[in-house]
């Protein structure tokens, strides 16, 4: 399920970075073009606000312009860009009133004493196609992701939404591979539970009709 950056892309990017460091402004335009959508998408998914995502994207692109010489190639260039994007997004979030986090533990699966599942599990995986593109479903998904605690949310966005590898996500967040895995698994369990509530309710609404 992971799509790491293809090797050729990485080489092209590194070449562009070196050219820009040497003063070639066209190389900067290409870098900005490659990253603009990624920066905006990630910051929008974190802040859920167009103005904030615009500010963050602008700030990150300007930082890349001004501080390109601070990039020393110790980690991948994309990891550097993601880290700057996360920091700028968190600055935005910190300046706002925070809604209290709900406890992720309450939504983890529950088992009986023998370790068997206690709740009835409905399989709604076949029914998502027709619901996928309704506004209601999109809203439910966005809200569920929004409710994730910050630590789990960022891992989920980098790994499952941006499609980065576990290793790369760890590099960006300064986490070990097991820590990335454990946070991602918790995020998926939390989201599965939230979406289950919605799809099961939808199925029973439909049955009532």
């Amino acid at each position: 399920m992971s799509f790491s950056q293809p090797k050729e892309d990485k080489e092209v990017e590194e070449a562009l970075v070196r050219e820009f460091q040497a003063g070639n402004l066209e190389a900067y335009d290409k870098i900005a073009d490659i990253y603009q959508k990624k920066i905006y998408g990630l910051s929008f998914n974190l802040t859920r606000n167009q103005m904030d995502a615009q500010d963050v994207t602008q700030e990150v692109l300007l930082t890349l312009f001004r501080k390109i010489n601070m990039f020393q190639g110790k980690s991948a260039f994309s990891s550097w860009v993601y880290r700057i994007t996360l920091n700028a997004s968190y600055m935005k979030l910190r300046s706002k009133k925070k809604e209290p986090n709900i406890s992720i533990d309450e939504l983890m699966p529950s088992f009986n004493g023998a370790g068997f599942q206690q709740e009835k599990i409905q399989d709604w995986s076949e029914n998502t196609e027709s619901l996928m593109f309704t506004n209601e479903t999109r809203d439910v998904i966005n809200k569920a992701v929004d409710l994730l605690p910050e630590k789990e949310k960022v891992v989920f966005l980098l790994r499952d939404v941006e499609g980065l590898s576990t290793e790369k996500t760890g590099e960006i967040l300064d986490l070990t591979v097991p820590a990335v895995k454990s946070r991602l698994h918790r995020a998926r369990l939390f989201l599965r539970k939230k979406l289950s509530n919605y799809f099961e309710e939808f199925a029973s609404r439909k049955a009532e009709k």
Binding site: G41, K120, I141, A144, V161
Partner: peptide
Amino acid sequence: PCISFLNTYQSTTKICRETLNQVEIPEAI
């Protein structure tokens, strides 16, 4: 039940990714 759990666990990742990846930069921005 565990098969259902497995299927819905996989679906969760897929539909969340498809939904959150739809973010586009508005023209004006």
